[in-house]
Simulated scan of single mutants.
Amino acid sequence: MDVADGTEHLSVRRAGATLILTLNRPEAKNALSLPMLVGLHDGWLAADEDDGIRSIVLTGAGGAFCAGMDLKALAGTGMAGERYRDRLRSDPDLHWKAMLRHHRPRKPVIAAVEGYCVAGGTEILQGTDIRVAGESATFGLFEVRRGLFPIGGSTVRLPRQIPRTHALEMLLTGRPYTAAEAAAIGLIGHVVPDGTALEKALAIAEQINACGPLAVEAVKASVYETAEMTEADGLAAELKRGWPVFDTADAKEGARAFAEKREAVFRRA
């Protein structure tokens, strides 16, 4: 399947150098399905492989981001998209890669959230790099309220992304959080008027796209690979990752463009 076609529950389109992945199951508040997971998996890989893509925006259709796992399917009443089952059999890790648990795209991922972003939606969110939400968006990890475990990575990632006391409250109470609360604890970075999250995310993507792609990808990689290192080890790793960027043609072009007072034309070289 050509990733450009997406799947019945995952829409794909390009906006310049940005790949936009849209969770597209609005009748179920974009609850996760096999077609959605397959589409996400293929979208992340396509972005990694296409040097013309410099950023990714993840959003949802119909005024919602993602309401998490399809609980009806979990209860045994079937999940949409059985024809994709062979993809899951051929790669038992596909769903974790799709949810950004076992895969980190090398391009920056910006989440544009409207409406519900709960349970698995909040778990996918933790795999994104920059997060924008409409003011009426709702966040939360509801799993414990259903006697379940947030196995998409939240017990590991959330305490590393926000203060532990807030992470534990979110994990152990299963209560909903407003966009304002999510911003206050550092889960998201921007709260915007409802209906404008995608617009804001695309504006951020354009700012990223205007930068040197080799530099952007090296910076993102360095942030994540040094996160759990000691400061000394992290600084050493940063030099190893960062020095080669200075030897690229893009770095030289950036300096020339600055001196000549013009926009840089980066060629990923």
Rank of each mutant, 00 (worst) to 15 (best):
V109G: 13
V109I: 14
I110K: 14
A111F: 10
A112M: 10
A112K: 11
A112T: 09
A112F: 09
A112P: 06
V113E: 03
E114L: 07
E114F: 03
G115L: 05
G115A: 11
C117P: 05
C117G: 09
A119C: 14
G120R: 13
G121H: 08
G121P: 09
T122L: 09
T122G: 05
T122D: 01
E123K: 05
E123A: 11
I124H: 10
I124L: 13
I124C: 11
L125T: 03
Q126C: 12
Q126V: 02
G127S: 09
T128K: 13
R131P: 05
V132Y: 12
V132L: 13
V132G: 10
V132H: 09
G134M: 07
G134D: 04
G134W: 05
E135F: 10
E135D: 12
S136R: 07
S136N: 09
S136C: 07
S136T: 06
S136G: 06
S136P: 01
S136D: 08
A137Y: 01
T138R: 13
T138N: 14
F139L: 07
G140I: 10
G140S: 14
G140P: 15
L141D: 00
F142C: 00
F142D: 00
E143F: 12
V144K: 11
V144Q: 07
R145P: 06
R145H: 12
R145L: 12
R145D: 07
R146V: 11
R146S: 15
G147K: 09
G147S: 14
G147D: 11
G147F: 09
G147N: 13
L148Y: 11
L148E: 12
F149D: 02
F149W: 09
F149Y: 14
F149H: 08
P150R: 03
P150Y: 03
I151T: 11
I151W: 05
I151E: 12
I151L: 14
G152F: 04
G152Y: 03
G152C: 12
G152H: 10
G152R: 04
G153N: 05
G153C: 06
S154G: 09
S154C: 07
S154N: 06
T155E: 08
T155A: 13
V156E: 03
V156C: 02
V156Q: 02
R157I: 04
R157V: 05
L158T: 00
R160Y: 12
R160P: 10
R160K: 14
R160N: 15
Q161M: 05
Q161C: 01
P163N: 11
P163C: 06
P163Y: 04
R164M: 09
R164S: 12
R164E: 10
T165V: 15
T165M: 10
T165R: 08
A167V: 00
A167H: 00
L168S: 02
L168H: 00
E169A: 01
E169F: 00
L171A: 10
L172Q: 11
T173F: 00
T173L: 03
G174M: 12
G174E: 08
Y177P: 05
Y177E: 05
Y177K: 08
